[in-house]
């Protein structure tokens, strides 16, 4: 699928690499192509001569055309947030000149000069260990928060959890997936590009604040799954959902639970005690490794 997006010159070189081990492909204008191979950044080199492949303006235009199916204007809402979701759940992070930028959101991004293609990996059953702490036959589903630094596999975990919840012991849980940045389900033309379970309603592109309150009102979910709580408003949306009796499984960027305590506005999530389980992921030894589990009193129950 990824080959469809890339120019022939890059494809010819990528063939020499194991696609399953590539996490990112970075294209920066007038610089060599850099790939994240098994967690390490390296320059993409041609087999013959070992010369790096340099990115041209035309290559960037080609990738954008292919990713947007020759309809860049149709992706304006995503572009102004700095990404494009292409077919197959491939996410392209973009950098360029922000137009009419106010403090938070530009009108659009023009003269795009860098693209970070994130190759999606569906690691089925990766959350098996964590899931044992989230769900039990007697207590049902527990409100859970996945804490991890960027690139440690939170999104892959959440996607797997959504999929698993959909099919527990023939029970049907109405799951609402709040996919603000199109990362979890990667919906394209209304269709999820990645498997997030059969009984999952997906709200893409909306703020958590809106999606939570509106979703609870109109879709009556049993569980809400969302990733990357970033602001106080996101935290408030979670607390309100939990207080409404809806189970919430979310993720947040942090290196430890103590780091969360230091963050103003965000630390409310700990003081409100709305989550019953906290999972700390790390990418030190391997991507997506759960290194510790905490209970609702922030006491470590697995290390």
């Amino acid at each position: 699928m990824i080959y469809r997006l890339l120019p022939q010159e890059i494809n010819n070189t990528l063939i020499n690499y194991d696609m399953k081990k590539i996490q990112e492909i970075r294209l920066r204008r007038n610089a060599p192509v850099v790939i994240n191979y098994q967690g390490k950044n390296c320059v993409l080199k041609r087999m013959s001569g070992g010369e790096p492949v340099f990115v041209t303006k035309e290559m960037i235009e080609y990738v954008l055309k292919r990713a947007t199916e020759n309809s860049l204007y149709a992706y304006n809402n995503q572009i102004k947030q700095g990404f494009i979701t292409a077919r197959g759940g491939i996410r392209l992070g973009i950098a360029g000149e922000s137009v009419n930028s106010d403090k938070f959101m530009p009108t659009t991004i023009k003269n795009i000069n860098s693209i970070n293609i994130r190759v999606p990996h569906e690691v089925k059953d990766c959350s098996a260990f964590v899931f044992n702490y989230i769900y039990s036959k007697d207590y049902g589903i527990k409100n859970s928060l996945i804490i991890s630094p960027p690139g440690a596999g939170k999104t892959t975990y959440l996607r797997d959890i959504a999929r698993k919840i959909s099919g527990i012991e023939d029970k049907v849980f109405n799951t609402l997936l709040v996919d603000e940045r199109f990362e979890l389900a990667s919906t394209l033309d209304g269709e999820p590009m990645l498997d997030v379970g059969m009984y999952t309603d997906i709200v893409s592109g909306a703020s958590k604040e809106f999606a939570f309150s509106n979703g609870i009102r109109v879709l009556r979910p049993d569980i809400i799954i969302t990733d990357e709580l970033m602001s106080e408003a996101d935290v408030d949306a979670c607390i309100n959902a939990v207080n409404s009796g809806v189970k919430v499984i979310a993720s947040i960027h942090a290196n430890s639970i103590s780091e969360l305590k230091e963050r103003q506005g965000i630390n409310k999530i700990l003081t409100a005690r709305c989550f019953e389980r906290y999972f700390l992921l790390s990418n030190k030894n391997k991507v997506g490794e759960c290194i510790s589990v905490y209970d609702e009193n922030h006491k470590c129950i697995y290390f």
Partner: peptide, 10 residues
Amino acid sequence: GFGTKGVSEE
């Protein structure tokens, strides 16, 4: 050049 620009430009 059709489809290569943002909404207003297009």
